[in-house]
Protein backbone atom coordinates (compact mmCIF):
# COMPACT_ATOMS: atom_id res chain seq x y z
CA UNK A 1 0.00 0.00 0.00
CA UNK A 2 2.97 2.34 0.44
CA UNK A 3 3.13 3.18 -3.22
CA UNK A 4 -0.60 3.52 -3.66
CA UNK A 5 -0.94 7.18 -2.72
CA UNK A 6 2.06 8.18 -4.73
CA UNK A 7 0.84 6.37 -7.83
CA UNK A 8 -2.77 7.37 -7.53
CA UNK A 9 -1.97 11.01 -7.13
CA UNK A 10 0.49 11.16 -9.99
CA UNK A 11 0.16 14.53 -11.71
CA UNK A 12 -0.78 13.28 -15.16
CA UNK A 13 -4.36 14.43 -15.22
CA UNK A 14 -3.50 17.73 -16.95
CA UNK A 15 -2.27 15.96 -20.08
CA UNK A 16 -4.52 15.21 -23.10
CA UNK A 17 -6.91 12.32 -22.41
CA UNK A 18 -5.26 9.85 -24.77
CA UNK A 19 -1.79 10.44 -23.33
CA UNK A 20 -3.13 10.26 -19.80
CA UNK A 21 -4.76 6.92 -20.50
CA UNK A 22 -1.60 5.60 -22.13
CA UNK A 23 0.51 6.62 -19.15
CA UNK A 24 -2.04 5.07 -16.81
CA UNK A 25 -1.85 1.83 -18.77
CA UNK A 26 1.95 1.91 -18.68
CA UNK A 27 1.76 2.35 -14.94
CA UNK A 28 -0.64 -0.61 -14.67
CA UNK A 29 1.53 -2.87 -16.80
CA UNK A 30 4.66 -1.83 -14.91
CA UNK A 31 2.96 -2.68 -11.62
CA UNK A 32 1.77 -6.04 -12.93
CA UNK A 33 5.28 -6.87 -14.12
CA UNK A 34 6.94 -5.82 -10.88
CA UNK A 35 4.55 -8.08 -8.93
CA UNK A 36 5.22 -11.01 -11.21
CA UNK A 37 7.44 -13.62 -9.53
CA UNK A 38 8.59 -14.93 -12.91
CA UNK A 39 10.47 -11.70 -13.68
CA UNK A 40 12.47 -11.89 -10.45
CA UNK A 41 13.16 -15.59 -10.93
CA UNK A 42 14.50 -14.89 -14.42
CA UNK A 43 16.65 -12.04 -13.14
CA UNK A 44 17.99 -14.39 -10.47
CA UNK A 45 18.68 -17.08 -13.08
CA UNK A 46 20.48 -14.58 -15.28
CA UNK A 47 22.67 -13.43 -12.37
CA UNK A 48 23.45 -17.02 -11.35
CA UNK A 49 24.38 -17.99 -14.89
CA UNK A 50 26.74 -15.05 -15.25
CA UNK A 51 28.39 -15.73 -11.92
CA UNK A 52 28.54 -19.47 -12.61
CA UNK A 53 30.05 -19.11 -16.09
CA UNK A 54 32.70 -16.69 -14.91
CA UNK A 55 33.57 -18.92 -11.94
CA UNK A 56 33.97 -21.80 -14.36
CA UNK A 57 36.24 -19.76 -16.63
CA UNK A 58 38.23 -18.69 -13.59
CA UNK A 59 38.66 -22.32 -12.55
CA UNK A 60 39.75 -23.25 -16.10
CA UNK A 61 42.29 -20.43 -16.22
CA UNK A 62 43.72 -21.36 -12.82
CA UNK A 63 43.98 -25.04 -13.77
CA UNK A 64 45.75 -24.18 -17.03
CA UNK A 65 48.14 -21.82 -15.29
CA UNK A 66 49.16 -24.61 -12.95
CA UNK A 67 50.40 -26.60 -15.97
CA UNK A 68 53.88 -25.95 -17.31
CA UNK A 69 53.41 -26.28 -21.06
CA UNK A 70 53.75 -22.99 -22.85
CA UNK A 71 50.73 -23.54 -25.07
CA UNK A 72 48.52 -24.06 -22.04
CA UNK A 73 49.82 -20.88 -20.46
CA UNK A 74 48.92 -19.06 -23.64
CA UNK A 75 45.41 -20.57 -23.58
CA UNK A 76 45.03 -19.65 -19.93
CA UNK A 77 46.00 -16.07 -20.73
CA UNK A 78 43.29 -15.97 -23.36
CA UNK A 79 40.71 -17.27 -20.88
CA UNK A 80 41.98 -14.90 -18.21
CA UNK A 81 41.48 -11.92 -20.51
CA UNK A 82 37.79 -12.84 -20.61
CA UNK A 83 37.39 -12.88 -16.85
CA UNK A 84 39.15 -9.67 -15.99
CA UNK A 85 38.22 -6.12 -16.86
CA UNK A 86 37.83 -4.70 -19.47
CA UNK A 87 37.45 -7.84 -21.61
CA UNK A 88 35.04 -9.47 -19.17
CA UNK A 89 32.57 -6.59 -19.39
CA UNK A 90 32.25 -6.90 -23.17
CA UNK A 91 32.11 -10.66 -22.78
CA UNK A 92 29.24 -10.30 -20.29
CA UNK A 93 27.26 -8.25 -22.78
CA UNK A 94 27.81 -10.93 -25.42
CA UNK A 95 26.57 -13.69 -23.12
CA UNK A 96 23.72 -11.48 -21.94
CA UNK A 97 22.31 -11.16 -25.45
CA UNK A 98 22.05 -14.91 -25.93
CA UNK A 99 20.70 -15.78 -22.49
CA UNK A 100 18.33 -12.84 -22.30
CA UNK A 101 16.77 -13.87 -25.62
CA UNK A 102 15.63 -17.21 -24.15
CA UNK A 103 14.47 -15.70 -20.90
CA UNK A 104 12.64 -12.84 -22.60
CA UNK A 105 10.84 -15.22 -24.99
CA UNK A 106 9.57 -17.16 -21.98
CA UNK A 107 8.56 -14.03 -20.10
CA UNK A 108 6.84 -12.47 -23.13
CA UNK A 109 4.82 -15.59 -23.87
CA UNK A 110 3.70 -15.92 -20.27
CA UNK A 111 2.93 -12.22 -19.74
CA UNK A 112 0.91 -11.95 -22.93
CA UNK A 113 -0.91 -15.26 -23.23
CA UNK A 114 -1.82 -15.92 -19.61
CA UNK A 115 -3.94 -12.79 -19.54
CA UNK A 116 -6.32 -14.55 -21.91
CA UNK A 117 -6.70 -17.39 -19.42
CA UNK A 118 -7.20 -15.00 -16.52
CA UNK A 119 -9.63 -12.76 -18.47
CA UNK A 120 -7.59 -9.82 -17.30
CA UNK A 121 -7.64 -8.18 -20.73
CA UNK A 122 -11.41 -7.98 -20.30
CA UNK A 123 -10.88 -6.24 -16.96
CA UNK A 124 -9.24 -3.29 -18.71
CA UNK A 125 -11.08 -3.32 -22.03
CA UNK A 126 -14.48 -3.25 -20.33
CA UNK A 127 -13.39 0.04 -18.74
CA UNK A 128 -13.01 1.75 -22.08
CA UNK A 129 -9.26 1.32 -22.55
CA UNK A 130 -8.66 0.99 -26.33
CA UNK A 131 -7.21 -2.34 -27.39
CA UNK A 132 -4.05 -0.94 -29.06
CA UNK A 133 -3.23 0.99 -25.88
CA UNK A 134 -3.37 -2.21 -23.82
CA UNK A 135 -1.01 -4.06 -26.14
CA UNK A 136 1.44 -1.22 -26.76
CA UNK A 137 1.77 -0.58 -23.02
CA UNK A 138 2.37 -4.27 -22.46
CA UNK A 139 5.07 -4.48 -25.13
CA UNK A 140 6.84 -1.40 -23.82
CA UNK A 141 6.99 -3.01 -20.39
CA UNK A 142 8.34 -6.20 -21.97
CA UNK A 143 11.09 -4.05 -23.53
CA UNK A 144 11.93 -2.76 -20.06
CA UNK A 145 12.07 -6.36 -18.82
CA UNK A 146 14.56 -7.14 -21.60
CA UNK A 147 16.72 -4.21 -20.54
CA UNK A 148 16.55 -5.37 -16.92
CA UNK A 149 17.79 -8.83 -17.93
CA UNK A 150 20.73 -7.37 -19.86
CA UNK A 151 21.62 -4.97 -17.04
CA UNK A 152 21.47 -7.86 -14.57
CA UNK A 153 23.85 -9.88 -16.73
CA UNK A 154 26.17 -6.93 -17.04
CA UNK A 155 26.16 -6.16 -13.32
CA UNK A 156 26.60 -9.79 -12.28
CA UNK A 157 29.32 -10.42 -14.88
CA UNK A 158 31.13 -7.17 -14.22
CA UNK A 159 30.77 -7.62 -10.46
CA UNK A 160 32.29 -11.09 -10.22
CA UNK A 161 35.02 -10.30 -12.73
CA UNK A 162 35.91 -7.13 -10.83
CA UNK A 163 36.84 -9.45 -7.96
CA UNK A 164 38.87 -11.61 -10.36
CA UNK A 165 40.64 -8.51 -11.68
CA UNK A 166 41.55 -7.50 -8.16
CA UNK A 167 42.69 -11.02 -7.35
CA UNK A 168 44.65 -11.72 -10.54
CA UNK A 169 45.94 -8.26 -11.50
CA UNK A 170 45.93 -6.54 -8.12
CA UNK A 171 43.56 -3.78 -9.26
CA UNK A 172 40.24 -3.11 -10.95
CA UNK A 173 41.09 -1.12 -14.09
CA UNK A 174 38.20 1.36 -14.13
CA UNK A 175 40.09 3.68 -16.46
CA UNK A 176 40.37 0.99 -19.13
CA UNK A 177 36.61 0.91 -19.62
CA UNK A 178 34.84 3.37 -21.87
CA UNK A 179 31.68 3.89 -19.82
CA UNK A 180 29.85 5.54 -22.67
CA UNK A 181 30.42 2.42 -24.77
CA UNK A 182 29.30 0.24 -21.88
CA UNK A 183 26.02 2.14 -21.77
CA UNK A 184 25.65 1.97 -25.56
CA UNK A 185 26.52 -1.73 -25.59
CA UNK A 186 23.90 -2.40 -22.91
CA UNK A 187 21.23 -0.58 -24.89
CA UNK A 188 22.20 -2.34 -28.13
CA UNK A 189 22.10 -5.74 -26.42
CA UNK A 190 18.60 -5.02 -25.10
CA UNK A 191 17.56 -3.58 -28.46
CA UNK A 192 18.68 -6.70 -30.31
CA UNK A 193 16.22 -8.77 -28.23
CA UNK A 194 13.23 -6.93 -29.68
CA UNK A 195 12.52 -9.06 -32.79
CA UNK A 196 12.38 -12.22 -30.66
CA UNK A 197 10.17 -10.60 -28.05
CA UNK A 198 7.91 -9.14 -30.75
CA UNK A 199 7.63 -12.50 -32.55
CA UNK A 200 6.67 -14.27 -29.31
CA UNK A 201 4.26 -11.44 -28.53
CA UNK A 202 2.54 -11.94 -31.89
CA UNK A 203 2.40 -15.72 -31.39
CA UNK A 204 0.90 -15.27 -27.92
CA UNK A 205 -1.85 -13.04 -29.29
CA UNK A 206 -2.57 -15.34 -32.22
CA UNK A 207 -2.60 -18.59 -30.23
CA UNK A 208 -3.71 -17.22 -26.82
CA UNK A 209 -1.49 -19.96 -25.43
CA UNK A 210 1.64 -19.49 -23.32
CA UNK A 211 2.86 -22.99 -24.16
CA UNK A 212 2.43 -22.57 -27.91
CA UNK A 213 3.94 -19.10 -28.09
CA UNK A 214 6.92 -19.93 -25.88
CA UNK A 215 7.42 -23.27 -27.62
CA UNK A 216 7.45 -21.81 -31.12
CA UNK A 217 9.43 -18.76 -29.96
CA UNK A 218 12.13 -20.94 -28.43
CA UNK A 219 12.13 -23.33 -31.37
CA UNK A 220 12.74 -20.41 -33.70
CA UNK A 221 15.45 -18.93 -31.49
CA UNK A 222 17.34 -22.13 -30.80
CA UNK A 223 16.82 -24.21 -33.89
CA UNK A 224 15.00 -22.77 -36.87
CA UNK A 225 16.96 -19.56 -37.11
CA UNK A 226 20.38 -21.16 -36.70
CA UNK A 227 19.52 -23.80 -39.31
CA UNK A 228 18.32 -21.08 -41.65
CA UNK A 229 21.49 -19.05 -41.04
CA UNK A 230 23.70 -22.04 -41.77
CA UNK A 231 21.68 -23.06 -44.81
CA UNK A 232 21.72 -19.58 -46.29
CA UNK A 233 25.43 -19.16 -45.58
CA UNK A 234 26.06 -22.52 -47.28
CA UNK A 235 24.16 -21.40 -50.37
CA UNK A 236 26.32 -18.26 -50.48
CA UNK A 237 25.88 -15.23 -52.72
CA UNK A 238 22.70 -13.25 -52.22
CA UNK A 239 21.36 -16.00 -49.95
CA UNK A 240 24.14 -15.27 -47.50
CA UNK A 241 23.09 -11.62 -47.58
CA UNK A 242 19.56 -12.68 -46.65
CA UNK A 243 21.01 -14.43 -43.59
CA UNK A 244 22.44 -11.11 -42.45
CA UNK A 245 18.91 -9.78 -42.27
CA UNK A 246 17.64 -12.51 -39.97
CA UNK A 247 17.43 -11.35 -36.33
CA UNK A 248 20.51 -13.40 -35.40
CA UNK A 249 22.51 -11.71 -38.17
CA UNK A 250 21.31 -8.31 -37.01
CA UNK A 251 22.29 -9.15 -33.42
CA UNK A 252 25.79 -10.09 -34.59
CA UNK A 253 26.17 -6.71 -36.27
CA UNK A 254 25.10 -4.82 -33.19
CA UNK A 255 27.17 -7.01 -30.85
CA UNK A 256 30.29 -6.40 -32.93
CA UNK A 257 29.93 -2.72 -32.10
CA UNK A 258 28.28 -2.90 -28.70
CA UNK A 259 30.75 -5.29 -27.07
CA UNK A 260 33.74 -3.03 -27.72
CA UNK A 261 33.73 -1.50 -24.29
CA UNK A 262 37.47 -1.14 -23.66
CA UNK A 263 39.14 2.21 -24.21
CA UNK A 264 41.78 0.45 -26.30
CA UNK A 265 39.34 -1.70 -28.29
CA UNK A 266 40.16 -1.91 -32.00
CA UNK A 267 37.57 -0.86 -34.57
CA UNK A 268 34.82 -3.44 -35.04
CA UNK A 269 35.37 -6.00 -37.77
CA UNK A 270 32.09 -5.95 -39.68
CA UNK A 271 33.13 -8.18 -42.56
CA UNK A 272 30.23 -10.39 -43.58
CA UNK A 273 27.83 -8.35 -41.49
CA UNK A 274 25.40 -5.52 -42.06
CA UNK A 275 26.32 -2.04 -40.95
CA UNK A 276 25.05 -1.37 -37.40
CA UNK A 277 22.78 1.39 -38.70
CA UNK A 278 21.11 -0.97 -41.16
CA UNK A 279 20.84 -3.65 -38.51
CA UNK A 280 19.18 -1.20 -36.14
CA UNK A 281 16.65 -0.18 -38.79
CA UNK A 282 15.93 -3.82 -39.66
CA UNK A 283 15.36 -4.65 -35.99
CA UNK A 284 12.96 -1.73 -35.71
CA UNK A 285 11.09 -2.96 -38.79
CA UNK A 286 10.81 -6.53 -37.49
CA UNK A 287 9.53 -5.22 -34.18
CA UNK A 288 7.03 -2.81 -35.71
CA UNK A 289 5.71 -5.46 -38.11
CA UNK A 290 5.27 -8.15 -35.44
CA UNK A 291 3.75 -5.80 -32.86
CA UNK A 292 1.59 -4.19 -35.55
CA UNK A 293 0.26 -7.59 -36.62
CA UNK A 294 -0.39 -8.47 -32.98
CA UNK A 295 -2.46 -5.29 -32.60
CA UNK A 296 -4.42 -6.00 -35.78
CA UNK A 297 -5.16 -9.55 -34.57
CA UNK A 298 -6.07 -8.35 -31.08
CA UNK A 299 -8.49 -5.79 -32.46
CA UNK A 300 -10.30 -8.49 -34.41
CA UNK A 301 -10.55 -10.98 -31.56
CA UNK A 302 -13.66 -11.84 -29.62
CA UNK A 303 -12.75 -11.88 -25.95
CA UNK A 304 -15.32 -13.94 -24.17
CA UNK A 305 -14.81 -16.23 -21.21
Amino acid sequence: MDDLDENLKSPISNLPKEITMFLQMLSIEQKKLSKRTMLWVEIGIMALIMVGMNLLLYAVSQTSLSQSAAVEVEGAASVTSQIVWPGSVGNSLGIATGMATFLLVILTGALTAQEYQWNSYQLLLSRGVPRPVVLIAKFLVIMVAGLLLVVTALLAGAGITALFSQSLNGAIPFAELNWGRVALGTLLAAYSLLPYAALTFLLAVLTRSAVASIGVGLAYTTLIESLAMQGLAFLGGSWATVAQYLPAGLTQSLSAVGNRVAVSAPAADLSGMLSPERAAVAIALYTLIFVGLAIVAFRRQDLSE
Binding site: L4, K32, W118
Partner: peptide
Protein backbone atom coordinates in the same frame (compact mmCIF):
# COMPACT_ATOMS: atom_id res chain seq x y z
CA UNK B 1 -17.60 2.28 -21.19
CA UNK B 2 -15.76 4.73 -18.96
CA UNK B 3 -19.11 5.34 -17.24
CA UNK B 4 -19.79 1.62 -16.85
CA UNK B 5 -18.79 -0.79 -14.12
CA UNK B 6 -18.88 -4.45 -15.10
CA UNK B 7 -18.64 -7.79 -13.40
CA UNK B 8 -18.21 -10.50 -16.02
CA UNK B 9 -16.73 -13.74 -14.74
CA UNK B 10 -13.75 -13.53 -12.46
CA UNK B 11 -11.55 -11.17 -14.43
CA UNK B 12 -8.77 -10.35 -11.97
CA UNK B 13 -4.98 -10.55 -11.75
CA UNK B 14 -4.56 -13.77 -9.75
CA UNK B 15 -1.04 -13.32 -8.40
CA UNK B 16 -1.86 -9.94 -6.85
CA UNK B 17 -3.77 -9.37 -3.63
CA UNK B 18 -7.35 -8.16 -3.55
CA UNK B 19 -6.25 -4.73 -2.40
CA UNK B 20 -3.54 -4.55 -5.08
CA UNK B 21 -6.07 -5.51 -7.75
CA UNK B 22 -8.25 -2.58 -6.79
CA UNK B 23 -5.22 -0.27 -6.52
CA UNK B 24 -4.15 -1.40 -9.98
CA UNK B 25 -7.49 -0.46 -11.52
CA UNK B 26 -7.58 2.76 -9.51
CA UNK B 27 -4.64 3.93 -11.62
CA UNK B 28 -7.18 4.49 -14.41
CA UNK B 29 -9.12 6.99 -12.33
CA UNK B 30 -7.51 10.11 -10.94
Amino acid sequence: LKRVGALVGTALVPYMSGRDNLALLARLYA
